[in-house]
Design a protein around this nucleic acid. Structure first.
Lengths: 333, 333
DNA sequence: TTGTAAGCGTTATCAG
DNA sequence: CTGATAACGCTTACAA
C-alpha cells in the first residue's frame, strides 16, 4: 500500500503538504496541489482510515445497533441510515442481533472501541440509567424507538400510545363495537403502549375490551395465526381485530381464511408499522404508518450534528406520529 | 479515554506488559496478569481499535457490499453474515446501495481504505477483470452470487440455469403445457440464466415458449402486476406462470385475482428465491429455495479463512443448487 | 507556501 | 518474565 510518504517522495514535497492536499487543507500552492494530486492518482493512493482515525481520535464511521437485520422493519431503518451516512461520506458499522441487555451493551461497547463519530442505537432491554450514562460520554449518541426523559433531545421515537388510540378510533368510526386485540408477548414497552392507546380510546367511548378479547403471542405471522386460533376457539365475538404489527395481522388473516371468514367482509383487520408486507398482503392491509425512513434520516442527521458538537439543536423533541394507512382490510360494518 | 499507558502507570508495569495481558500474550507472571486485569476493569479500559488496526495493518472488521439492504433477499444475507462475523469477534462494515459499476467500485474502495481483513462483495455491474484485479491484491476477497472462472475458489454462487430448468420441470410434471414467463428487465446475468434454464427444459421436451409468452418488467411486485396485465391483455393462453422472483410472483397473483382468476385452480404460479414473503403470500408460494443463509455463512467463513491465508481451501467450488419448495400456488392440471 | 517533528494508542523486537 | 523503544500512517503546531 502506498503511503503519504511515498507520495511525498515521488512528488518532491513533504508529507505535510500531501496531507494538506488530501484534506483540502489551507494554503497550498496551486501547482504543488495539482502536481501532488496527479502523483496520488497515478500511484493509486488510498488513505489509511485507521491512521487517520487514530490521530483524529475519531473514526469516520457511523455506528448502528439494531435488533434484527432480517426484519423488514429494521432493514428499512438500516437502509435509510446508510443513505444518510453515505451522503456524508461515512461508513456504516453495524451491530445487529441484540435481544438482551448484555448483547445490546456489547454491541454499543464494540462501537465505542471503534471510536465511531456517532451512533444510532435501538435498545429495548438496557435500562435508562445505563443509556443515559453512555450518552453523557458519547456526544453523537442517539436512541431510536425509545424515549428517555433525561436525554429527550437524543431520542427519536414514535408515539405508540397515540398509535393504538388511532387504531381503535379507526375501526370504531367504521362502526365496529366488538373489538379483539392480538398483541405481542415481547416484554418491552411498545406492545404495552399500543394496547394502552387502544384501551384509552375504547374507555372514552364506553366500549368494553374484556381480557377474553385479547390474545397474546409472538410478534410474527405465526404468532398472529396462533393468537387468532385462540380467539376463535374461545368463541369470542368480534367484528374487528387490531394486531400488534403487520406480520401478526397477516397471520390473523390467514387463520380467518382457514376458518372460511372473509376479510374485510366478515372481519376487519388492522396492522401496525406499514412495512412492505402490508402492501403485499391480500387484501392490502389497513395499518398504522410508521414513518421509519423519516425517523431514520432524522436520527442519522442529529447524530452527526451532535457529533460535531453543532448547535444544541434547539432542544427539539423528536416525537413522531403514526398515521392511518387505510387500505382494504377494514370496512364499514 | 483511558489508554494502555494509563493502565501501565496505574499498575506499575510497562505498556508492553499491559499489551501482553490484553492479547493473552505469552509469558506474563500470573500475579502481574491478574493485577493488570484488575486495574483495567476498575479503570474501565477499552482498547483503541484504530491504533490496533494501524500497527497490525489490518482492521478486525469484515466488509460487506450489498446492492440493497431493504430487499429481504439482501437483508437475509447481511443477517447471516453478521452472525458469522460476530462469532469471530468482528464487526460488519456495510456498504449498500450499489446499483452501478462506479458505486460498486466506490463501496469496495472504501472498504479497502478501512483495511478490512476480509470482504464479501455482491457485484453485478463491475466487469470480471476489475474484480479479478481486486481479488489479487486482497486475500480475503469473496464474491457472492457471481461466478468468475479465474477466481472460482472465491465465488459463492447459485446455479440459476439449473433453477430455471427445475421450475419448468416442476410445472410440466404437474401437467402444464402452456407456460408463460414473467422476467426481470434488470440487465444482469440472473434473469438471463433463469430464462435459459426454462428454455433448456422446455426445448428438451418439445414444449414451445413463444416470445409472446414472455413478459418483462421490473423485479418487484409492481413489475409482476404490470407484466401479468400485459400477458392478459394480449390474450396469451397459459396455465402456469414462472416468475423471476417471489415479489414478481406475488404481483402476478394480484393481477390474476383482479381478473377473477384463481391461483392455483385456474393458473399455477411459481416464484424464485424463497424469501419470507413467499410464506406470507396467500396461497403460500411455490418457489425455488435459494439457500441464502448457507451461502452467506459459507462466504463469510471462506473470506475469513482466506484472510488468514489458511489452507488454500482445497480449491473447492462453491456452487449452490436451488431446490423446489412446493407450497400452494401450483397444482396438477 | 512549505517543511520539520511530535504524537495519536498499539504492537513487536530486542535486551535485560 | 518484563521493560525500553521503534514503528504503523497520518495530522498539526511550529518554524522557516
Amino acid at each position: 500500500m502506498t503511503t503519504i510518504k511515498d507520495i511525498a517522495k515521488a512528488a518532491n514535497v513533504s508529507p505535510a503538504t500531501v496531507s494538506r492536499v488530501i484534506n483540502d487543507g489551507p494554503k497550498v500552492g496551486l501547482k504543488t496541489r495539482e502536481h501532488v494530486k496527479q502523483v496520488m492518482k497515478t500511484m493509486g493512493y488510498r488513505p489509511n482510515i485507521n491512521a487517520r482515525a487514530l490521530v483524529n481520535k475519531k473514526s469516520t464511521s457511523l455506528g448502528l445497533v439494531l435488533a434484527e437485520l432480517m426484519d423488514p422493519f429494521f432493514a428499512t431503518y438500516a437502509n435509510a441510515i446508510e443513505t444518510v451516512a453515505r451522503e456524508s461520506n461515512s461508513q456504516l458499522l453495524m451491530s445487529s442481533g441484540s435481544s438482551s441487555a448484555s448483547s445490546e451493551l456489547d454491541a454499543i461497547e464494540t462501537l465505542l472501541d471503534h471510536r465511531v463519530k456517532a451512533m444510532i442505537v435501538h435498545s429495548k432491554f438496557l435500562d435508562d440509567k445505563t443509556l443515559v450514562d453512555i450518552a453523557r460520554t458519547v456526544p453523537g449518541f442517539v436512541l431510536i424507538n425509545r424515549y428517555i426523559e433525561a436525554i429527550s433531545e437524543r431520542c427519536v421515537w414514535l408515539d405508540n400510545v397515540l398509535g393504538g388510540y388511532k387504531m381503535a378510533e379507526h375501526v370504531v368510526n367504521l362502526g365496529h363495537r366488538k373489538i379483539a386485540v392480538v398483541s405481542s408477548d415481547f416484554d418491552i414497552e411498545d406492545p404495552r403502549d399500543r394496547l394502552q392507546g387502544i384501551r384509552n380510546f375504547l374507555a372514552e367511548h364506553h366500549i368494553p375490551l374484556p381480557d377474553s378479547h385479547i390474545a397474546i403471542s409472538s410478534p410474527n405471522q405465526q404468532g398472529g395465526e396462533i393468537a387468532m386460533r385462540e380467539l376463535l376457539a374461545s368463541q369470542t365475538e368480534f367484528t374487528a381485530v387490531l394486531a400488534y404489527n403487520d406480520a401478526m395481522a397477516s397471520g390473523v388473516m390467514n387463520t380467518l381464511y382457514d376458518h372460511n371468514m372473509d376479510v374485510p367482509n366478515d372481519v376487519s383487520v388492522m396492522g401496525f408499522d406499514d412495512v412492505i408486507l402490508a402492501q403485499y398482503c391480500r387484501p392490502k392491509l389497513t395499518t398504522m404508518h410508521y414513518p421509519i425512513r423519516l425517523m431514520a434520516a432524522t436520527a442519522a442527521t442529529i447524530a452527526m450534528d451532535l457529533a460535531q458538537e453543532k448547535a444544541p439543536s434547539e432542544e427539539r423533541s423528536y416525537k413522531f406520529i403514526p398515521t392511518i394507512m387505510a387500505r382494504h382490510s377494514t370496512k364499514k360494518i
